[in-house]
C-alpha cells in the first residue's frame, strides 16, 4: 500500500469511528445550539452597548458565535480527540507497538485526527450553523471563494490544534498522570482561541498577546476569514507558521521520547 493510501485509510478510520455514535452526536448538536443561543444574546447586549466593538457589526458578532459553536468540536478546543488514547497508550506501554509500525507516529495520529475533524465539522458544525441562521440574522458570505478560504483556514486550525495536543499527549512520557497537563491545555485553549469572546474584543496588551499566540489560529483565524474581517493570505501564513513550528517541536519531542522508550524498553 502506498504511503498516501495508508494515511487516507487511517483518516477514513477516524471518520468512521466517530460516525458510529449517532445519539451522542445528536445530543452534542443540541448542546452546541443551546450554548449558541445563550452566547448570541450576551453578544447582542454587548454590541448594543458598544456598536462596532472589535471591528464587528452586530450581525458579524452573532455570526462569530455560531462559527465558534460549529468549530468547537471539530478543532477540539476542549480536547476530546486522539490525545486521551495516545496518553493511555504511552502510560500502558502499548506505544512501543506503534513505534514498530511501518508508519510515522505523528503522521499516523494526524491522519486519524483529520478524519475525526471532518466528521465533527459535518455532523456537529453544519447543524448548529443552520440553527443559528434560522434564529438570528447572520452575516454569512455569498462568494464561494470566501467559503473555500474558510475551509482551508479550518483545516489549518485542525492541524495547529493537533500539533498542540500532540505535544500535550507526549508529556505522558515524563509525567505519571497526564490529566493535569491536558486540563491546563484545554482551559488555555478555551480562553485563548476566542471561543468565549472574540480576541479582538480583549483589551490592550492582553489582546495583543492572545492574538499572537498559536490558539488564535483555532477559532479567531477561520472566523475572521468567513466574516471578511481579515485578508486570508496573512492569516494562512500565520497558521502555517504555527503549524510548522509546533509540528516540528512535536517531532523533536517524539524522537527524544522514542529514544527513551528504546533505551528503557518501554
Amino acid at each position: 500500500m502506498g504511503t498516501g493510501r495508508l494515511y487516507a485509510a487511517v483518516a477514513a478510520g477516524g471518520f468512521r469511528r466517530y460516525a458510529t455514535y449517532r445519539t451522542a452526536t445528536a445530543a452534542g448538536v443540541f448542546t452546541n445550539t443551546v450554548f449558541g443561543v445563550i452566547l448570541a444574546y450576551t453578544y447582542l447586549a454587548l454590541w448594543q452597548e458598544r456598536p462596532h466593538l472589535g471591528g464587528y457589526d452586530e450581525a458579524q458578532a452573532l455570526t462569530y458565535v455560531w462559527i465558534g459553536q460549529a468549530l468547537l468540536v471539530a478543532v477540539s478546543v476542549m480536547g476530546g480527540g486522539f490525545e486521551d488514547e495516545l496518553m493511555e497508550r504511552i502510560r500502558t506501554g502499548d506505544i512501543a507497538i506503534d513505534l514498530y509500525r511501518p508508519a510515522d507516529l505523528q503522521l499516523w495520529w494526524l491522519a486519524g485526527d483529520l478524519g475525526r475533524a471532518l466528521f465533527q465539522l459535518l455532523a456537529r458544525g453544519v447543524a448548529p450553523m443552520v440553527a443559528g441562521v434560522l434564529l438570528f440574522p447572520l452575516a454569512l458570505p455569498t462568494r464561494p471563494l470566501t467559503w473555500l478560504a474558510f475551509l482551508a483556514a479550518v483545516t489549518l486550525a485542525v492541524v495547529v490544534s493537533f500539533a498542540i495536543r500532540f505535544l500535550v499527549a507526549l508529556s505522558a512520557f515524563w509525567l505519571l498522570d497526564g490529566t493535569g497537563v491536558a486540563q491546563i491545555s484545554w482551559i488555555t485553549a478555551t480562553f485563548c482561541s476566542g471561543m468565549l469572546l472574540p480576541l479582538n474584543v480583549f483589551p490592550g496588551a492582553l489582546g495583543e498577546i492572545v492574538r499572537a499566540l498559536p490558539w488564535a489560529s483555532l477559532i479567531q483565524a477561520p472566523a475572521d476569514i468567513l466574516l471578511g474581517a481579515a485578508d486570508p493570505l496573512p492569516v494562512f501564513a500565520r497558521q502555517l507558521a504555527w503549524a510548522a513550528a509546533l509540528l516540528a517541536a512535536g517531532r523533536m519531542l517524539q524522537s527524544v521520547a522514542t529514544r527513551r522508550v528504546v533505551v528503557q524498553g518501554g
Binding site: A27, T31, I38
Partner: peptide
Amino acid sequence: QDASEVQNSFTYGGQTLLQYPPSI
C-alpha cells in the same frame, strides 16, 4: 444511553444563562 450531553445543555447551559441579567 449516549445522550448524556443533552443534560449538559440544561445544567451547564442553564447555569450560564442565569449568570446574565434576564433583560438581555
